[in-house]
Nucleic acid binder design. Sequence first.
DNA 1: AGGCAGTTCTACAACGTTGTAGGCAACGTT
DNA 2: AACGTTGCCTACAACGTTGTAGAACTGCCT
Lengths: 333, 333
Amino acid sequence: MRHRLKDVAERAGVSVKTVSNVVNGYVHVRPETRARVESAIAELNYRPNLTARSLRKGRTGVIALAVPELDIPYFAELTRHVVNAAAHHGWTVLVDQTGGSHEQERVVVAGIRDHLIDGLIFSPLALTAADLAALADGPPMVLLGERVHGGPADHVAIDNVAAARRMVTHVAGTGRRRIAAIGAQRTAQGVSARLRLQGYRAALEAAGLPYDEGLVAPAASWHRADGAAAMRALLGSGARPDAVFCFNDTLALGAMRALHEAGLRVPQDVAVAGFDDIEDGRFSVPTLTTVAPDKEEIARLAVELLAELIGGHRGAAAREVSASYRLELRESA
Amino acid sequence: MRHRLKDVAERAGVSVKTVSNVVNGYVHVRPETRARVESAIAELNYRPNLTARSLRKGRTGVIALAVPELDIPYFAELTRHVVNAAAHHGWTVLVDQTGGSHEQERVVVAGIRDHLIDGLIFSPLALTAADLAALADGPPMVLLGERVHGGPADHVAIDNVAAARRMVTHVAGTGRRRIAAIGAQRTAQGVSARLRLQGYRAALEAAGLPYDEGLVAPAASWHRADGAAAMRALLGSGARPDAVFCFNDTLALGAMRALHEAGLRVPQDVAVAGFDDIEDGRFSVPTLTTVAPDKEEIARLAVELLAELIGGHRGAAAREVSASYRLELRESA
DNA sequence: AGGCAGTTCTACAACGTTGTAGGCAACGTT
DNA sequence: AACGTTGCCTACAACGTTGTAGAACTGCCT
């Protein structure tokens, strides 16, 4: 039931290559021949074997996107943009979930899918420079998020330190004095956490506020449940924050829930700010003030960088491209 | 920099096929030879070309998942489960977004990715039986959602009518008398909408409540914004519902937001129930009462059915497999 | 008429892998 | 000593496509 070029060729009475030429829109084919071939194609419902084409051309038309978890809305939204941007280049997207585990991230970078994908867009959580070294002869790769120290790969990111600092400065500007942070991570891993914490501290300092370790709550992962747990821990510890800066929106939504359960009003008693601008935050009660990275831009830039790499670009140095962001001020802070 | 079997063979002083045998764990290879080949593989950092292997074997190890939109949380969560279930079978997952457009869905079914994927799991919105007919010689396919009338494909679904009916019956059981519905769709498309509406009507009838068209609000798509808009429309029309059954959770979250803006309390003034059990609903204020399909089970069943099809199963009739669900009663209703 | 350029088409090889068929030793059995 | 069996390995072909080289034909110019 599945036909090949050869079947079409026999039916149309031409060579295999002529059919291939018709399929690929080669110009020098007599209209009459072309018509005969096209009707043979239609009759047999022929569709080219993309695997064979890939083998022959050395390109598969598939790129992989590796993210920690698809059901973190930020990554789901990002994935949507990447799939769309890739479509503009004629690529389809293969999705890998790393679960944020170091081991799984190493596997992805090691190029398990080698020769099946033309390139890789990778949003790592725990990747180290050493892991990246193993990549030398893997497929072209673009990393999302700020640069892994010393790593050789191209990056697309927003300025996390500056963004966090601007947000916390905004919160301090509304008169809050005991601004907590949720989402810190003890491990050396977690680049985003480190940078956002850094921005938080810089903003406190600039505002003349003391840095209080008791106001910084760690979160192993960044789901709603972690945010709620961290908030409860903060409240239970006797720390009495009048604002919380959460390192992403799901943490913030979880924190707001915990505040609600504790009978505290947002923003009257405690202001809450997040990071990512996921859709939930635009409809939550109250709506969430957040740092809004331009996800469409991030996806587009990453795909464009990857396209250049696949096209043969071999710059000496790793490139780092900045995407834009803005503060989205809503009800919560 | 990229090596082939041939390079490894030369370095180890054996034939290409012997290297292939080592790579594939064929038993009859002398330990000494195997060791020599393995060290050659390690030295050259050889990794097999999956495209060539696919061509030779006729299997790619990739399945496609086609969903309307990844940033609808239900589909993001479902995708996560499908990727995990597929991994158990050694498959990776290619993601297609159809945008819910009829045209794009037709393209996917027509098998654009043919020969690049071993099978397809498809969650259609607007697909008709006629479209499915075109599929005859495409790759094996499993549909998510209830059966497209007369279609030949296997399905995995929960019983939407019964689930909707149970939820609305629950709401009526709490004493609500003017139960609105949000998410109806005028088009013949939208199978889920039709079935959930049907369950809604059945529950009203069983509860002895009148069916009032003025309480049924359509929604072109099922995002939060649509839910908010539909709720505002209901309130603006003078209908005074004391409960709303939304055909999915994002509609419900949007509706809750609109109720909040209108100064109405949930659930005291208006109860709200949703459908899908997305994570947001477990942390929203108030938490969302919802129908909770077992997404992990849906994904697992779909992948298993697909595995059977790929393995050569050719049942006479289309199979329809039911997944389980339960009511998740929380604060909102 | 001869030659040249352009058009249209074909035959062949190659992409990197694995299935098949078969060769050659080494071994145990008759 | 002859024979079959088993273990280990190799050579070749094939998966379906496209790039290359070139053959056959046409039309045009001198």
